[in-house]
Simulated scan of single mutants.
Amino acid sequence: MVNIMARIIAPCEVAVRDVIPAVKAILIDELRKHGLSQMQISVLMGISTADVNYYLKGKRGNDELKKTLESNDDFMEMVDLLVRRMIRGEEVMNICPLCSVARKVKGENYPCPYDY
């Protein structure tokens, strides 16, 4: 007999709906605070300038989650490190560690290989 209560959870599939857009919105806001243009941000983030504009106008990324993440010192310290590395043109880490911390702050408990 099959247990219909068991299910497979792919952390990235779940995170891509709410966590990653909030993380990207914060990264874009921080890059903008450092004086980068939307074009420069789009190149660094690997997205279109229209996407950057949507994030800056709050059309992408959950505002409540974004505020929660921005109030977390550990998360924002990681964001600051990543933003500074991006601006200096250094090889940067992927956003998986940020997503991992964001999921913990959000209270999600499904495991991911990047969990800290």
Rank of each mutant, 00 (worst) to 15 (best):
D74N: 11
A102I: 03
N3D: 14
M76Q: 11
I4Q: 11
Y116N: 08
V52L: 02
Q40N: 05
A25L: 14
V14I: 12
K106M: 05
Q38Y: 03
S71R: 14
D63H: 13
K24Q: 12
C12Q: 11
M86P: 03
E108P: 03
M78R: 15
M86Q: 09
I8M: 10
P97G: 08
Y55F: 03
C112N: 12
R88C: 04
C12K: 14
P113N: 04
K24Y: 14
G35Y: 01
K104H: 07
N109T: 04
M78D: 15
A15R: 13
R88E: 10
N109A: 04
G89N: 05
V92N: 04
G46C: 08
E91N: 10
I26M: 01
N94K: 12
L27W: 01
A102D: 14
F75A: 11
K67V: 01
P111H: 00
K106N: 05
G35R: 00
C96G: 03
P11E: 08
P97L: 05
Y55C: 02
M1L: 08
M93W: 10
E91G: 06
V101D: 00
K57T: 11
G89E: 02
K24F: 10
L44W: 07
V19Q: 13
I95Q: 03
C99D: 10
R17W: 12
E91A: 07
P11I: 07
D51C: 09
K67A: 08
L44M: 13
L82W: 04
R84L: 11
P21I: 13
K24C: 07
R103T: 03
I87T: 06
K59E: 15
M86S: 02
D80H: 14
C96P: 01
E64W: 10
L56C: 03
I8V: 10
K59V: 08
N72L: 07
M76T: 10
I26V: 05
M5L: 08
Y114F: 12
I8R: 14
G35K: 01
V52K: 01
L27D: 00
N109D: 06
I41R: 06
R88Q: 12
D18K: 14
L36Q: 01
A6T: 05
P97F: 11
I9V: 09
Q38G: 03
H34D: 05
K57N: 14
M39R: 11
Y114V: 05
P97D: 12
P11A: 11
A50F: 08
M39W: 09
G89D: 04
G61S: 14
D29M: 00
I28A: 00
I26D: 00
V83G: 01
K67F: 00
R88S: 09
A10T: 07
R85D: 08
I26T: 02
E90W: 03
N72H: 12
Q38C: 02
I87E: 15
Y55I: 02
A10F: 11
A50D: 12
K57Q: 15
G61E: 15
V92S: 10
M1D: 09
K104N: 06
M1C: 04
P111Y: 10
A50G: 08
K104V: 03
T68P: 03
G89S: 02
D51A: 12
R84M: 09
L44N: 07
